[in-house]
């Protein structure tokens, strides 16, 4: 393994997140079993007090989770100089089999954490804990993914051997391989551009429609998720080409480097924010029928939609700027 301050920091961060979640699901399970809002018993009072603790713990845990994801990516990028053949995070992640699963799980966990936080805020605005069962049920369901992330990340860092020769992004993200990555890089550029711009435009249109008519929230949520997936594919397929000004370099990680003004962080942050906010607006929609939430939910949903639209527009703006100012042209 490689001992490095940032790796120690990530271990501590991830370990603490797991500890907090363990604590939270222990009491969450008790609440799920014994919760009875109509009871005036002392136990119910204790449980009501505990909800504050759990919601604080999980809020902190998930907030740390979101920041740690970016620290993780930066660390893997930073470590590339230690491995023969690695030129960016793509190579470092490929040093052992745990690298890519860790990243994928981190992305999933970030989105899940974001959605849970949105539900939590909505629930806290009502006086009668309307979403409490859903919230803690979800927590029980999601926690294993966070524990798995801790283990995967641990296995990845413990298995980093500096004498391993890894593949550089040029060979990982090339269309000559025969797997899903090759499928993404090999996606034809022009149709992919149409799909990407179409998906982004549809998401933005659905958002504006939702703001105006208060309808189509679930569709907007679904479109946000679709836009997220399409945007990732688009980065690998053609956006990266314009940023690197190279017609063959498809790497989604080199854009995180200094040479490209760390533009990848802006891209991934806006994308993640847009997806979480958009999905959140969709997920909240069914809760509008709950009486105690009817007053506060529309306002919150509106804020989420505006955040999602801004983030997606920001993402679109950055990519358009990159494409227009790039010296690469396919004409």
């Amino acid at each position: 393994m490689i001992i490095q301050p940032a790796i120690v920091a990530l271990f501590i961060g991830s370990g603490l997140v797991c500890l907090m979640l363990l604590f939270a699901i222990y009491y969450g399970a008790i609440i799920l079993r014994r919760w009875d809002l109509h009871s005036g018993s002392e136990q119910q009072l204790v449980l009501e007090r505990r909800t504050y603790l759990i919601s604080t713990l999980v809020t902190y845990a998930f907030a740390f989770q979101l920041i740690a994801a970016f620290l993780f990516i930066y660390t893997t990028d930073h470590l590339h100089s230690l491995f023969i053949g690695a030129m960016c995070a793509a190579g470092t992640l490929n040093v052992n089999v745990w690298g890519y699963p860790t990243v994928l799980l981190k992305v999933f966990n970030c989105i899940a954490a974001g959605l849970w936080l949105i539900l939590n805020v909505a629930d806290n605005r009502a006086h009668d804990y309307p979403l409490i069962r859903i919230k803690y049920g979800l927590l029980l369901l999601l926690s294993p993914f966070f524990f798995a992330e801790f283990l995967l990340q641990g296995a990845y860092f413990l298995g980093l051997e500096p004498d391993v020769i890894t593949s550089c992004c040029g060979s990982l993200f090339s269309s000559e391989r025969e797997d899903i990555v090759a499928g993404l890089t090999g996606l034809p550029r022009i149709p992919m551009q149409w799909v990407y711009h179409g998906a982004l435009a549809m998401t933005l249109a659905a958002g504006i429609y939702l703001l105006r008519t208060h309808r189509g929230a679930i569709a907007f949520g679904a479109l946000s998720l679709a836009a997220f997936l399409v945007a990732i594919a688009a980065i690998i397929s053609f956006i990266s080409l314009y940023i690197y000004e190279l017609p063959t370099h498809h790497c989604p990680f080199c854009i995180l480097q200094r040479e490209y003004h760390y533009i990848g962080y802006a891209l991934y942050a806006t994308l993640l924010l847009g997806t979480i906010a958009g999905l959140g607006a969709g997920v909240l929609h069914p809760c509008r029928s709950i009486k105690s939430l009817a007053a506060t939910l529309p306002g919150m949903q509106r804020q989420l939609v505006i955040a999602a639209i801004t983030a997606f527009a920001g993402f679109g703006g950055i990519t358009t700027y990159c494409i227009l100012t790039s010296r690469l042209s396919f004409s």
Binding site: P5, A6, A9, I12, I67, F70, L71, T75
Partner: peptide, 8 residues
Amino acid sequence: YQLWALFF
């Protein structure tokens, strides 16, 4: 990066 690591 250093500051974030320090934060954690």
